[in-house]
């Protein structure tokens, strides 16, 4: 059983690797077991997935724009 146990820190790293299929069979087994017994990492996994799904929405909500001075400066550089 001891060989099955991994820390939460290691589990967070394995979750990253699993996304890209870079997790070996045994590591995958260790991660699955850890998630079964660790409620905190189950919460982390759910929130991590939600964050990845929503990060690109930052683009939709970014309302910044350049000032007229900034635009003039670009035009000056282009001349």
């Amino acid at each position: 059983m001891k060989a099955l146990n991994i820390s939460c820190k290691k589990a967070a790293e394995y979750m990253c690797k699993k996304e890209e299929g870079s997790l070996g069979f045994w590591q995958n087994f260790q991660l699955s077991y850890h998630l079964l017994v660790c409620g905190l990492c189950r919460i982390f996994k759910q929130q991590d997935q939600w964050l990845k799904d929503n990060i690109c929405k930052v683009d939709e909500h970014c309302k910044g724009c350049l000032s007229e001075e900034d635009k003039k400066a670009i035009l000056e550089k282009l001349r």
Partner: peptide, 9 residues
């Protein structure tokens, strides 16, 4: 320029 800026920021 504004849409490029909003992408970069």
């Amino acid at each position: 320029s504004d849409m490029l800026y909003r992408y970069a920021l």
